[in-house]
């Protein structure tokens, strides 16, 4: 439980941390596009280099990156096995019972692994370098054109802020309740699947009750401070973009163009 790193900011003072969060969201989308256009060893390598350089610039230790990737390992292994065994290719390397291991299958498996690892690493960088408040502010700002269509952008952003804000609180609460039930001899580690699911009940019920209670208390607190929807609200911190953001945008566009051109020529 204590090892959950997704969605947690890694505080450091770096150029990446200081970028405008709106740009960072756009960059992340560009990165995902770039990663999925990449179909060759060269273009995947460009992506991998980009991720490594971005982590270095953000001053995030490699240890954090490893920690982020740990939960993905089962998925990677699963994909690896499936691609190797079930990919229908021409060049058969090995034949085992009904399975054929082909060169194409191996290739596709390796690409898949790289893609998963890179997409998790790359997108995690956004949350490592951006606080959840900045992130939702940025989303609100990026979606603001939708306001014209009467889409409740502010409300959506507020809901996201609240949800993100309470993730650590809920984790803490879960740990507390788990400890309390462990102190009464609850056993979460042994037994078969059904026994383990049953053992979760003493955690889930108190957790739901306190979450609902917290939600209604928060609603009361907001209402008593006269919260109403976004119309006419001003901000303590307004988002500003600068030279660095423009420079980063140029680099990103260049990279994306490079990868697209390279893949057009099947390089």
């Amino acid at each position: 439980m204590g090892d959950i790193t997704i969605g947690q900011m890694y505080p450091a003072s770096s150029a990446v941390h200081r970028l405008d969060p709106r740009f960072k969201i756009v960059f992340t989308i560009m990165f995902v596009v770039m990663l999925f256009t990449a179909g060759s060893a060269l273009t995947v390598a460009v992506n991998a280099a980009f991720v490594l350089i971005a982590y270095t610039l953000a001053k995030i230790p490699l240890k954090m990156l490893v920690k982020t990737l740990r939960p993905v390992i089962p998925i990677v292994v699963f994909m690896l096995i499936f691609n190797v065994l079930f990919y229908s290719g021409e060049t058969v390397l090995l034949k085992l019972w009904i399975f054929k291991i082909t060169l194409e299958g191996l290739k596709s498996a390796v690409f898949m692994v790289f893609r998963i690892v890179l997409i998790v690493a790359g997108t995690s960088l956004l949350t490592y370098t951006t606080s959840s408040i900045e992130l939702t502010d940025a989303i609100e700002s990026l979606l603001s054109p939708l306001k014209k269509l009467k889409f409740p952008v502010h409300e959506l952003a507020m809901m996201m802020t609240i949800a993100l804000r309470f993730i650590p609180t809920l984790i803490e609460e879960t740990q507390k309740i788990m400890s309390a039930q462990k102190a009464r001899g609850a056993d979460f580690e042994s037994g078969n699947l059904i026994a383990r699911v049953k053992a979760l009940l003493p955690i889930l019920i108190p957790l739901f009750i306190s979450a609902i209670k917290r939600a209604s208390e928060l609603a009361t607190a907001m209402e008593s401070r006269c919260y109403h929807n976004g119309i006419g609200r001003t901000r303590l911190k307004t988002l500003k973009s600068g030279k660095n953001d423009i420079a980063a945008l140029m680099v990103m566009t260049g990279l994306l163009a490079l990868v697209v051109v390279l893949s057009m020529f099947n390089l």
Binding site: K176, I177, R184, G185, I203, P206
Partner: peptide, 25 residues
């Protein structure tokens, strides 16, 4: 060990069952 604000750990349908959780374990 009785935790701080232990009332948040109650989960059973009845008070009886909740007190019985430890002894049952």
């Amino acid at each position: 060990l009785v935790f701080q604000y232990p009332e948040y750990q109650l989960f059973e349908e009845t008070v009886y069952k909740d007190i019985a959780f430890g002894p049952k374990n």
